[in-house]
Design a protein around this nucleic acid. Structure first.
Lengths: 218, 218
DNA sequence: TATTCCGATAGTGAC
DNA sequence: GTCACTATCGGAATGAG
């Protein structure tokens, strides 16, 4: 990938690439997004950014900084998802209509809650990053993207290969520490309905299209 | 393939498809030639044309007819190969020049023999025809064709899977009677130089192009 | 488990 | 081993100042 350039010179990139940066972190849009919104949070610490994430996250100070920054970034990503998909969402439409005075409140008399976009955002590390600098994936869970091209793409985000940030620190005996799992080559389970495709990636893709249409209208 | 139509109504096809026919045989150009010249000799006998070739060829009367007709057809195929490639052949050029009076005889004083085109023609059955009616392949041995597209194409003509007509009748214990050989999926050996490609069909194809250029100039 | 290109491999559907 | 189409699977190159 060459994520290093983002760390050393984040200000040189357009806002379409670098979402924000500060002394300790850079948040970028993944160049090959595997979901509607897909960002990478890059810690700038030279000490940790070349370590395996499981090792780096053993350090309590580092871990706490990452967790805090990721929580903030996750809010931004949720906002972006709302910006992109809100116009399609029934929950948001009712709330917006009431707020705008275009409609009355719910039969119960309460303001519609609006969609919980934050709940649609996932945050975690890949168990075996192939290259480049340490990065946290922060992404909408839909997996609806032209860049999602094969089984390993999908399974890297929808099996234990994706380790949620909240799971750190990992227990010593955590199975995800093992480097030889078959998660990436196994069947593909739909994140939304649980159906499994053992072989047909194209079949999964068609299904993800359908799920996406329904999900975004929630 | 649908070879049946050639048997019942050979006269209805243009000469580009049906080369000749008589009461007992039809000679056609293979619709998907795997060599510069590639024809199929089809016996019209209803009794034998739906049998496995090994079984049909057990019948002495049938076998002798097929062998005789194939020998004649082979002559035609050799002539066609000469027509197509003769202009590129050094052996033929010298002979033709002498015959035309455009050149003197060889240093030895003899007429150049001209190329033995018949020796370039192969005749045989596939050990496991996949479909259609019984047919003898009569083809130039170059395997130079855009229709030669994968390993099984090549190996079906360049392993014991291709059973020369002269080998009939087969001995009872002939290994080619077995239906589970791995000939088609094994390495590909160049018919001319003997080099073997274990995996790369594209590599073989490039080599066959080179061999063809040299072979046709012989 | 970076992408992209190429090619080898596998299954199907055709009539 | 009929073809033609699609898709899956597998290796290799990739940039660089």
């Amino acid at each position: 990938m060459g994520l290093g350039a983002y760390l050393t010179n984040p200000g040189s990139f357009p806002s379409s690439q670098v979402i924000y940066h500060n002394d300790d972190f850079v948040l970028i849009n993944d160049l090959f997004p595997k979901a509607t919104v897909h960002t990478l949070l890059l810690p700038r610490s030279k000490k940790f950014s070349l370590m395996h994430p499981f090792d780096a996250m053993e350090d309590q100070g580092f871990r706490e900084k990452v967790v805090a920054e990721a929580a903030a970034a996750r809010q931004l990503v949720a906002k972006e998802l709302q910006r992109r998909l809100g116009p399609h969402s029934r929950s948001d439409a009712r709330r917006e209509a009431v707020l705008n005075g275009d409609a009355g409140p719910d039969p119960s008399g309460s303001l519609p809650a609006g969609r919980d976009w934050l709940a649609e955002i996932r945050v975690g590390f890949h168990a075996q990053p192939s290259m480049s600098h340490l990065h946290v994936h922060i992404f909408s869970r839909d997996m609806h993207s032209d860049r999602l091209k094969h089984r390993k793409h999908y399974n890297s985000f929808n099996t234990p290969f994706l380790v949620p940030l909240e799971d750190f620190p990992l227990a010593d005996e955590d199975e995800r520490r093992g480097r030889k799992s078959g998660w990436l080559s196994g069947g593909m389970r739909c994140w939304r309905c649980g159906r499994v495709w053992e072989k047909s990636f194209v079949g999964l893709k068609e299904h993800l299209d359908e799920e996406f249409e329904d999900w975004k209208r929630q």
